[in-house]
Amino acid sequence: MPQLIKVGMADLNIALYPDILTTIGLGSCVGIALYDKINKIGGLAHIMLPSSKDIKNNSNKAKFADTAIVILLTMMLENRADKKNIVCKLAGGAQMFALKNSSANNDILNIGVRNVAAVKKVLEELKIPIIAEDTGGNFGRTIELYTEDGGLMVKTIGHGTKII
């Protein structure tokens, strides 16, 4: 029986075949699913903020796009994943609330967009291709990464369920 491994907010983990990685209730946060299809090794990170460099309290490396992805990749390589096989799928980065006539904290409300952009930049630097994504919008997402085939299921409330 495959085990369901939960990844919390500002958390990351890897899984070997046949286990499944999941993270629940992504809002503006981004779920980064890495997968090596030859060795059937998956990795999942749930990041909250774009960069650890902008923030003083940055001890939790899994919280930031720039630090989390590198750690996740390292963990996978340590478990015999091969860098040249690794591809990425992304989900999340929504804007849960849109305020009218307010400039005050738009930077915070559009954090989802900034998270996705930061994730893409890091992946580009690491030369990891993004083969599918379901990002943006104004709704939450729960995702499951299957190590069997690298499918990423995206569940929502009122916006359907799909596998990307």
Partner: peptide, 22 residues
Amino acid sequence: SIPCLAIDMAGAILSVPAVEFG
């Protein structure tokens, strides 16, 4: 400001203050 309503997963809604505090 004028308020904004959302009905969605607890994790997604609560990520808003979590990011602000985060």
